[in-house]
Simulated assay, not measured.
Amino acid sequence: MQDTADLSTSKLGTKKYWDELYALELENFRRNPQDTGDCWFSDSDAEQKMIDFLVDNIGAYRITEDASVVDLGTGNGHLLFELHETEFQGKLVGIDYSEESVKLATNIAEATGVEDFISFQQADIFNSGWNPGKFDVVLDKGTLDAISLSGMKINGKLDVVDVYAEVVEKILRKDGIFLITSCNFTQDELIEIMQTEKLKPWKAIKYPVFQFGGVQGATICSIAFVKQD
Rank of each mutant, 00 (worst) to 15 (best):
84 H>E: 13
66 D>I: 11
92 L>R: 04
89 Q>H: 14
118 I>W: 00
97 Y>N: 14
66 D>H: 14
119 S>T: 14
108 I>Q: 01
99 E>P: 02
120 F>V: 07
105 A>S: 15
95 I>W: 00
82 E>I: 08
102 V>F: 02
51 I>P: 08
81 F>Q: 01
49 K>V: 11
48 Q>K: 14
71 D>T: 12
107 N>P: 00
109 A>F: 04
61 Y>I: 06
119 S>H: 09
119 S>R: 11
93 V>G: 07
53 F>T: 12
108 I>T: 01
49 K>A: 12
88 F>K: 09
50 M>F: 08
60 A>V: 08
83 L>K: 03
82 E>H: 14
112 T>G: 01
69 V>C: 07
115 E>A: 13
65 E>K: 15
50 M>N: 09
91 K>E: 14
84 H>S: 11
72 L>Y: 10
58 I>L: 09
55 V>Y: 09
84 H>L: 15
87 E>T: 15
78 H>E: 15
55 V>C: 13
75 G>H: 05
99 E>Q: 13
56 D>L: 11
104 L>G: 01
47 E>P: 04
54 L>F: 03
111 A>G: 11
98 S>T: 10
72 L>S: 12
109 A>I: 03
66 D>F: 10
49 K>D: 13
49 K>M: 11
86 T>K: 15
108 I>A: 00
71 D>R: 05
94 G>V: 05
99 E>Y: 12
76 N>D: 03
62 R>M: 09
88 F>V: 05
58 I>G: 04
115 E>L: 05
52 D>N: 15
78 H>V: 11
102 V>P: 01
